[in-house]
Simulated assay, not measured.
Amino acid sequence: MDFFIQQLMTGLSIGSILLLVALGLAIIYGSMGVINMAHGEFVMLGAYGAWAMNAYFGLGLLASLAFVFVGVGAFGFAVERGVIRFLYRRPLDTILATWGIGVMLQQAVRLFAGGELRYVEMPSLLSGTVSVFGTIVPGYRVFIFLFVAALFLVTWLLMFRTSFGTRLRAVVQDRQTAMCFGVNADRVYSLTFAYGAGLAGLAGALVAPLKSVSPEMGGAYVVDAFFVVVLGGVQSLFGTVASAALLGQMSGSLAYLANDTIAKALVLLAIIVLIRFRPQGLFATKVRS
C-alpha cells in the first residue's frame, strides 16, 4: 500500500506540473487554433521573472506570482496585437513567427540576464514534508497540486460561467456571426492569448524551485504540453486534466520500473498509437453548428 500511494503521489506530482504548463497552451491552442511555439519561452520568462523579483526587489516566490502573471500576460497581449493577429488562418506562418519570437526571447534573456544557470529559492513555509495517508511527500509538490487544481477551477469558471467565456466560445464557433451580435472578436482573442501567456508564466515561476532556470528551459516543457493538449482533445479542458494525469502516472510508473529515458520513449510511443487510432483525442468536444 505504501508503494502504491508513493507511486500515485509521484504520478500526481508529474501530472500537476504537466497540467500547469499545458493549461495556458490549451487556452491558446484549443480556443484560438494558434500553434504557439513560443509557449515554452513564456514559461521561461515566468521563471526568470520570479528570479528577478527576488534578486532585485527581495520578493519571495509566492509574493511574486501576481507580478509574474501580469507581466507575462501583458507581454503575451503585445505579441498577439503586434504579430499573431495578422496571421490567423495561416498556421505555417504562425508556427514560424512564434518560433522566431521564442528564439529572440532566448537571446534577449542571455543578453540581459546572462547564460548561466539561475536558482529560485523554495518558500521556507513549503520546504518541509507532509504525510499523505501515511506516506511522506514533499510539501511543495502538494502545494503545486492544490494550486493547479484551484487554477483549473478559476479557468473553467472563466470559460463557462462568465460573459467573457460566452463571447470566446461564440467567436470560436462562428466568428462572423458573433461579430454581427456586437462581440469584439479581436479584443477577445487578445485577452485570451494574454491569459494563456500569463498561465505559462505562472507555470515557469512555480517550476523554478524544482529546476534550474536557464534560457533553454522552456523547450522540454512545451513538447510535453502539446502532448497533453492533443491527447486530451484540443478544445476540452477536462480532457487536458485527464491526459495530464494519465501521462503523469505513466511517466512515474515507467520511470520506476526502468529509467527516465525508456519511460519517455514508451510514453511517446503510447501517444503515437493513441493518436493514430483516435486523432481527435481522448475527450473530443462536440460542437453544434
Rank of each mutant, 00 (worst) to 15 (best):
L87C: 07
M53T: 14
T162F: 12
V171P: 01
P138H: 04
R161Y: 13
W99R: 05
G114I: 10
V171T: 11
M159F: 13
F77E: 01
G73V: 08
W51K: 05
R85Y: 07
M104H: 05
V70P: 01
L92M: 15
F69Q: 07
R110C: 02
V68G: 01
L105E: 01
F164T: 01
V142F: 04
W156S: 10
F67N: 04
T155Y: 05
G82C: 06
E121H: 07
F57D: 10
V171H: 02
Q106H: 08
G134H: 08
A78V: 08
F112L: 13
E80P: 00
T94G: 07
F75M: 11
R169M: 12
L92N: 14
V142L: 12
F42W: 08
V70I: 15
F57I: 12
S127Y: 00
M44H: 05
V43A: 05
R141G: 07
A150N: 06
F77Y: 15
A108N: 09
A149C: 12
A52V: 15
R81Y: 12
I101R: 02
G128F: 01
G115W: 06
W99K: 05
V103K: 10
A63P: 04
A66L: 15
L168G: 04
V83H: 00
L117M: 08
I95K: 09
P123F: 04
E121W: 07
I84L: 09
T166Q: 13
A78N: 02
G60N: 10
E41D: 15
A170R: 03
E80H: 08
R89F: 12
F77R: 00
L157F: 14
F75R: 01
V79W: 00
V148H: 03
A50V: 08
G115E: 09
V137H: 03
G128S: 13
V137L: 06
A52T: 15
V70S: 05
R161D: 12
T135I: 14
T98C: 07
P138I: 06
V109C: 08
T135V: 15
A150K: 07
Q106V: 07
G71Q: 09
L96D: 09
V103G: 10
R90Y: 10
E121T: 06
G82I: 00
G73Y: 01
S131M: 14
L125Y: 07
M53H: 11
G128C: 07
Y48A: 02
F164L: 09
S64T: 13
M104Q: 09
L87I: 06
L146G: 11
L126D: 00
M44C: 10
F86P: 02
L153F: 14
Q106S: 11
V130L: 06
A55H: 11
V142D: 01
V148A: 06
